[in-house]
Simulated assay, not measured.
Amino acid sequence: MSSGVWAVIPAAGRGRRFGGELPKQYLQVAGAPLIAHALDAVLSHPAVQGAIVVIAADDPHWPGWTQRAGKPVHACIGGDERADSVLAGLQGLPREVAGDAWVLVHDAARPNLATGDLDRLLATALASGDGAILAAPVRDTLKRAGSDGAIDRTEPREQLWRALTPQLFRRDVLARALESAAAAGVAVTDEAMAIERVGGNVRLVEGREDNIKVTTPADLALVEFLLSRRADAAGAATVPKGQLAP
């Protein structure tokens, strides 16, 4: 990946499930908006050259960043659905980003991405050629409900995974897959689903369970704790050996 990777951050959603007037990606947590943590998590990796953030047309909250972590940040207008916004981001990347460049898509409300997970994702995608996603094996027992709200049956959880982000694919391949799904009227819920439709062999890379997406107020409290602990660990690591952190 000597040519570098670009990140697409879809952030045009309203976060209706979370509730409140402020879209969840702009909620303050550990001293910064969620989207700032998500951006910094991907841009801090040496393989990532820059990012494009996809925002709503009438977004009054976008801070207008043009760089973070010393790397360029662009913005463009997204669509009604996630797939529309990701496609807009792919099309809005700088002209110098080649069609066969690797592009990672990361949720704006998923701020606690570990560098080690991103390392493994990049290595796996490069080796596979078709791309890869971070994911976590399903560990809970799964129940299927009947129409009356009672348990209909227990579903086997073996070989089931929860899709996380980032998800990493080549720019032109992902763009064509998203365009194909849109033309067929298929609502894809993540980028891997679009690639699967066109026959791509997407690899699963096990990621950390604490790479959570903020969906509810309870998630926000958990992320606050995780990011604070991460900041404390980073601060302790900078203290010279033999000295105590303040």
Rank of each mutant, 00 (worst) to 15 (best):
E209V: 15
V188D: 08
A47R: 11
L222Y: 11
S128I: 05
R171S: 00
L174C: 00
V48A: 09
P23T: 08
R171H: 00
T216C: 10
A12W: 02
L122Y: 05
D172R: 05
A75E: 02
W6S: 03
R162N: 13
Q49H: 11
S44T: 08
T124K: 04
K213S: 15
R16E: 13
S147M: 15
L164R: 05
V188N: 03
W161L: 13
A182G: 04
V188C: 04
R14K: 14
L226W: 09
L104F: 08
K241L: 13
V239N: 02
H37M: 04
A245F: 05
I77Y: 08
V54R: 00
A114G: 07
Q28Y: 12
D232E: 15
P166Y: 03
L142M: 03
D117K: 02
W161H: 10
P156L: 10
A12C: 10
E155Y: 13
A187T: 12
A177M: 03
E158F: 12
R16S: 15
A132T: 05
P246Y: 09
R68Y: 06
G31M: 08
T216V: 10
A47I: 09
A237C: 10
Q28I: 11
I52Q: 07
A150Y: 10
I77D: 01
A192G: 00
D58A: 09
L178Q: 01
L226F: 11
D130W: 01
T141I: 14
A109S: 11
A7N: 09
P240D: 05
A187I: 12
G116F: 14
S3F: 15
A12H: 02
I35A: 06
R17V: 15
